[in-house]
Amino acid sequence: MESRGRQPVADVALQGGNIAVAEVADRGKVLQKLRMTDIGFRWLTRGAAIAVLLILGGIIVSLVWGSLEAIGKFGFGFLVTESWNPVTEQFGALSPIYGTIVTSIIAMVIAVPIGLFIALFLTELCPMFLRRPIGIAIELLAGIPSIIYGIWGLFVFAPFLQQHVQPFLINTLGNVPGIGGLFAGPPYGIGVLTAGLILAIMVLPFITSISRDVFSAVPPVLKEAAYGLGCTTWEVSRYVVLPFTRVGVIGGVMLGLGRALGETMAVTFVIGNAHRISASIMAPGTTISATIANEFTEAVEPIYTSSLILLGLILFAITFIVLACARLLLMRLNARVGA
């Protein structure tokens, strides 16, 4: 009773068109061929998966290779030197690193609370029929290319800040003892503060959408129990939802931070590209990515190029650590939900 039941095997396979033999008599051969395609396909997909790892390996190796010259010349001092002088070929990464960190801090200080409140609105307050459209609208903010934020920031946002917001900040906060230094100096419009604000708008959707997802994964029973005790919406959110979703929210925040640290074009337009560290956040500065974007094509001397690649390596290392932490936190969360 060999065939009856098993006849369709080869037929189905043949109809699939993968084997271009019209009249196959030998079933053994067909099955053998199928087995080979199966093994071949398996290795093909496995190879592609390994290729993803090779991309990461390639990035690391090529950046290290490209920056060897700068590492050899400046060593560890690269990280703590402020001067950046292409003429004398003295390069230090301190001011770009400082700018990267400060702009990201400004962005997170603004975007995290706002993102959490939007997520709260979307999961607790918003009428059902508006949830999807508003959620999508916020996510569209993430879809706008960063160069658009850049051109908008340069021509619209920076002049607005210069004329209306910065003079106000300088006259009020600038006179407060202690933090006054942060808001000193003339209102340039462009600068560290402007870049931070634009970054805040850019990372807002990332924080919002992850927070919303983890908020809505809270078991309704928990919330209902708290409401049953007479808690207000705010108390439920603050003392039930937020503690329950803490890990996921932190993961989302770190993901946003990873974006903010590596963002290039929007920052390049509005930061002012000044290689110096100013006490005031109104002053122009630079970030790692903005420095690379601005100067790479102009860098002729090998040591200049090499220093810029070393900057890229530092940026990659920082974002890698932040993103890896974010993923580990989110993975831990998934494991818990799955369990």
Binding site: L255, L308, A324
Partner: peptide, 17 residues
């Protein structure tokens, strides 16, 4: 894990690569 990191890696670094 690596893919998720590549997903949000700074694109300028990919340009350098």
């Amino acid at each position: 894990f690596i893919n998720d990191i590549l997903l949000s890696a700074p694109s300028i670094v990919i340009g350098l690569f």
